[in-house]
Design a protein around this nucleic acid. Structure first.
Length: 565
RNA sequence: UGGGGAAUAGUAUAAUGGUAGUACGACGGGUUCUGGUCCCGUUAGUCUAGGUUCGAGUCCUAGUUCCCCAGCCA
């Protein structure tokens, strides 16, 4: 019997999903286990989001699971504060590690035992050389290294020394444990890498239990093996470590054999993603903390108002390959706009208010008008907005001498106030400096709701807020943190910070409904962009962060000088 | 003069020897009570040189360019 319908179109898949598919099909593994292994020494950023979407993503797609593992092997850099922050960010992005929470430090006893195993098998030795001596004898990129004079110690002596390292007998730097691999290897990671060092530091989780700690190379792959990770997915710079990763797995009594695969890390224009530079931005006060909305950190994106689903969509669109890349910020912004357009409530907010008096509207009176909450979602319903004699409109929505393509308010011109009435500008009031301070207008009561019964059209529709009902707010406008698409990464990278990356607007006028916006929710200020309620705000005086502006063809026309043509 | 990795429109990513496709961007147009959304269209690409093949982005050879590696960081 022939199948009637065409085969499902195969979704295009990256090389990692290809490998997993193969391994599952060939029976190399029955279940898929991945891991997301942050070091608790900083906050997660959008580059980590790419990794999480891959690791948790494939685990979900192939019916496996993803471990959240803290790679906490260096107590001199790591802090407990980061562990909770990282968990919060992983959850926010929408991923659930369930019961699979691990710490490399949780494996310390096994790792120690395995280090002795290496010693017993003649595959590791205690080196008495200083760090400097080790560096000098490591060779260079093009010249091989030379063996340590301590390389041929007896198993007994090595065991004794290593145990005394553990018992705290030696100061930091005096002795290390090195794997005995090959000092002539072209791969520097194979030149007898240090696998244990003395660190008399209190560990966030194990306290003072240990004074020797495994290095990354001796902890990562083994942790993978202990946890039953099948596919250990990391970024390209670890490819050089894979031979060592495999060497250790082969020479240790591991319960399972994980494989490492490398993909290229995310780079984004107009920002930096290296942990070192991000830390510098925070510590030197170039931004206001890790959650500054200009930061590419996940907590920064959250505060900025990016929905986690938009970040996931972004990660999915960016793809997984092994080629270096720099993704345009415009793609992230597109993902935010696309989602937010569908789900965000529309509200009216006047950022730079200009007073308008409707001269033929009775003083002291007001009325409620119906406004649509989200034209993209009928289920979002409607709300009522108050209208009265004195209003605010956007300063930039009025020009005394408008260029040809300016469709908004000007002397003698009629425009629509959205969901309200047509108004016509009858007079312009200025101060002694010639600055426009107030507009006098008339309204047409017949156009209530926004349409003229006689069918006449207007070219412009403006947002507005009733002065008597307005809620005053602070609104923070954000731009790219760095002016250049690809900021210089030298010591001078701070010079590339965009001096206009933040603009704080006071005295913004919001429609009343906005006062109740829950912190963290992102709404659309009509005709302007998406804005998220910031925790700095109060019901009396809300604070909003601009997530991303609406596409603005008028601004483009102005910028290109075509507004008058 | 070592080892590892990568080269497809401006950016990112598909095409697994058989019509180089998609998304973002840019540009133009239509619709519109958001100069938004939506819709339509235009733009623009296989690093180079040889070779194999009826046919090459894909296979072979030789180059070129870019990225990573010399922490007791991860």
């Amino acid at each position: 019997m022939s199948e009637a319908h065409a085969p499902e179109a195969e979704a295009s898949r990256d090389f990692i999903r290809e490998v997993i598919t193969q391994d599952l099909k060939s029976g190399k593994t029955d279940t898929l286990v991945t891991r997301f292994p942050p070091e608790p020494n900083g906050y997660l950023h959008i580059g980590h989001a790419k990794s999480m979407c891959l690791n948790f993503g494939v685990a979900g797609e192939f019916g496996g699971h993803c471990n959240l593992r803290f790679d906490d092997t260096n107590p001199t850099k790591e802090e407990h504060e980061y562990i909770e922050a990282i968990k919060r960010d992983v959850s926010w992005l929408g991923f659930d590690w369930g019961e699979h929470l691990y710490f490399a430090s949780g494996h310390f006893e096994t790792l120690y035992k395995w280090a002795e195993h290496l010693i017993v098998n003649g595959l590791a030795f205690v080196d008495d050389q200083t760090a400097e001596e080790i560096r000098e004898t490591r060779g260079t990129l093009t010249a091989p290294g030379t063996n340590s004079p301590f390389r041929d110690r007896s198993v007994e002596e090595n065991l004794d020394l290593f145990r005394r390292m553990r018992s705290g007998e030696f100061a930091e730097g005096v002795r290390v444990l090195r794997a005995k691999v090959d000092m002539a290897s072209g791969n520097i990671n194979m030149r007898d890498p240090v696998i244990y060092r003395v660190l008399h530091a209190s560990h966030p989780r194990t306290g003072d239990t240990w004074c020797i700690y495994p290095t990354y190379d001796f902890a990562h792959g083994q942790s993978d093996a202990i946890e039953g990770v099948t596919h250990s997915l990391c970024t390209l710079e670890f490819a050089d470590h894979r031979p060592l990763y495999d060497w250790l797995i082969e020479n240790l009594p591991v319960p399972s054999v994980p494989r490492q695969y490398e993909f290229s890390r995310l780079n984004l224009t107009h920002t930096v993603l290296s942990k070192r530079r991000l830390i510098q931005l925070v510590e030197e006060g170039h931004v206001n903390g890790w959650d500054d909305p200009r930061m590419p950190s996940l907590c920064g994106l959250r505060r900025r108002g990016f929905p986690p689903a938009a970040v996931r969509d972004f990660a999915q669109r960016v793809g997984i390959t092994k080629s270096d890349n720099v993704i345009e910020m415009a793609l992230l912004e597109h993902c935010a706009r696309e989602l937010l357009n569908k789900i965000s409530l529309r509200r009216s907010a006047v950022l730079r208010p200009l007073k308008v008096v409707i001269e033929n509207y009775p003083e002291g009176e007001s009325e409620l008008l119906e406004a649509v909450n989200n034209p993209e979602d009928e289920g979002a319903g409607q709300r009522q907005v108050p209208f009265s004699r004195e209003l605010y409109i956007e300063r930039e929505d009025f020009m005394e001498e408008p260029p040809k393509k300016f469709f908004r308010l000007a002397p003698g011109r009629e425009v629509r106030l959205r969901y309200a009435f047509f108004i016509t500008c009858t007079d312009v009031i200025k101060d002694e400096n010639g600055e426009v301070t107030e507009l006098r207008c008339t309204y047409d009561p017949e156009t209530r709701g926004g349409d003229a019964p006689d069918g006449r059209k207007v070219k412009g529709t403006l947002h507005w807020v009733s002065a008597a009902h307005a809620v005053e707010a602070e609104v923070r406008l954000y731009e790219h943190l760095f002016t250049e698409a690809e900021p210089s990464l030298g010591a001078d990278f701070l010079d590339g910070i965009n001096p206009e990356s933040i603009e704080v607007l006071e005295g913004c006028m919001l429609e009343p409904a906005l006062a109740e916006t829950p912190v963290g929710e992102t709404v659309q200020f009509e005709r302007q962009g998406y804005f998220a309620a910031d925790p700095d705000g109060t019901p009396d005086r809300p604070v909003f962060n601009r997530t991303v502006g609406l596409r603005n063809t008028w601004a483009k026309l102005q910028a290109s000088g075509q507004a008058n043509t």
